[in-house]
Write a protein that binds this DNA or RNA. Structure first.
Lengths: 182, 182
DNA sequence: AACTATACGGAGACAGTCTCCGTTTGGCAA
DNA sequence: TTGCCAAACGGAGACTGTCTCCGTATAGTT
C-alpha cells in the first residue's frame, strides 16, 4: 500500500472512532471524511460500507475483550458471581457506541458479516468463562455460547435503546444467569 | 374534523400499515403519502412523527394483544409451559414490522413515548399471565413485569435484527422462563 | 351564494449516501 | 535525477429521504 493511502486510512479510522463515540453508530460518514481531512471518495474506497469501517475501528477493541476476560476469570466467588461479572463486562464491551449492541449481536452467528471476526473474539472469551463453569458442572446442559451471547446482547440492545442504567440492567442479567445455571 | 381530513387520515393509516408491513419500520414516509394518494404535507400534518403514525397503525393491534392473552390463559399445562406460550406470543405480537421489537421495547417504561399506551396494553396482558402464575407461587419474588417485557423484548430484537427463526428463539425464551420461575 | 376556517399539495431546502472521473502523486526503473 | 504510470485522491453531483412553507382548494356555515 502506498504511503499516502496508509496515512489516510489511519486518519479515517481515528476520525471514525472519534465521531462514532460522540454521535453513535449512525453518525454521518461524510462527517468522518471531513474530520479526517480527506474526500468522501477516499473514505468509500478504503471502507466500502459502514460495517467495514466499524470493523477497522475495533481492532484495538479485541485486546480489551481478552484482557477483560482475564480479569473476570482471576476473580474469586461462586459461579453465579463469576457469570454475572462476565455478563456485566460483556454489556460494557459491546456498548461502546450507540447502536453497537444491536449491530454486534445481529452479526453473532452470521458468517457473512464484515465484523464476524470481532464476534468470534467475543464468543471465544465467553467460551473461556463457560469452560470454567463447566469444570464445576455449574451450567445447565445443551446451552450454547451463541445463545448466551444473544441473550446478553438482547439485554444490552434494550438498555442501549432505552437508555437504561446499570442498576436497571443488573436484574435482567440475574434472570439470565439463573436461567443458564443448573 | 372535516370530512376530507377524516378520509385522508384513514387512507394514510391504511397505506402506512401496508408499507410498514412490506418494508419495515424504516420505510419512506413519502412513499406512504404517495400510496395514500396525498401530499407529504398532509401526512406530516396528521402525523408529526413516524412514532405517532406507528401509534395510529396499532389501534387494532390492541385488541389482538388482549385476545392473544385470553387464548394463552385458557390453555392447560404447567407454569413453565404457560409462561413459554406467552413469551412466544409476545414475540410474535411485537414483531409485526422489522424494527418493531426494538421500538416497542425501548418505549417500555418511557412515559414520554408516543406509543406508551401500546406498551401499557402489552404490560397489562403480561401482568395477567404473571397474576396467574403468582396464584401458584410459581415466580421468583421481586420480578417486575417491565423487566420480563424487557427480557423478552431483547430476545425479539435480536431475532428481528439477525433474522432468527422460531427454532432459534425458543431456547432463549426457555432460559428466561427458567430464570424467572422460582 | 358568499364567506372563511380548515385542510390540501407539492415544490424545494436540507441532509446523508455513494459514485464517477479528471487530477495528483508516490515509488520505481532507467 | 528524471520520467513514467499505476495507484490514490477529492469533491462535484446524482440520488434518496425528511420535513416545511405557503399559495390554492374546499367543506361547512350563514
Amino acid at each position: 500500500m502506498r504511503a499516502d493511502a496508509q496515512r489516510n486510512r489511519e486518519r479515517l479510522v481515528e476520525a471514525a472512532r472519534e465521531v462514532f463515540r460522540e454521535q453513535g453508530y449512525d453518525a454521518s460518514l461524510d462527517e468522518v471524511a471531513k474530520r479526517a481531512g480527506v474526500g468522501a471518495g477516499t473514505l468509500y474506497r478504503h471502507f466500502p460500507s459502514r460495517d467495514v469501517l466499524m470493523d477497522a475501528i475495533m481492532q484495538s477493541w479485541v485486546d480489551r475483550v481478552n484482557d477483560a476476560a482475564d480479569k473476570v476469570l482471576v476473580h474469586e466467588g461462586d459461579s453465579r458471581e463469576l457469570l454475572l461479572a462476565w455478563f456485566e463486562t460483556y454489556v460494557d464491551l459491546i456498548s461502546m457506541h450507540k447502536g453497537g449492541p444491536a449491530k454486534i449481536t445481529s452479526a453473532m452467528g452470521d458468517a457473512t458479516s464484515p465484523i464476524v471476526t470481532k464476534c468470534q473474539v467475543l464468543a471465544a472469551a465467553t467460551q473461556r468463562v463457560v469452560d470454567r463453569l463447566d469444570e464445576v458442572h455449574a451450567l445447565r446442559e445443551h446451552i450454547e455460547v451463541v445463545q448466551m451471547c444473544r441473550l446478553v446482547g438482547g439485554v444490552a440492545s434494550v438498555a442501549d435503546n432505552g437508555n437504561l442504567d446499570q442498576a436497571a440492567v443488573r436484574p435482567l442479567l440475574e434472570v439470565i444467569a439463573d436461567g443458564v445455571l443448573a
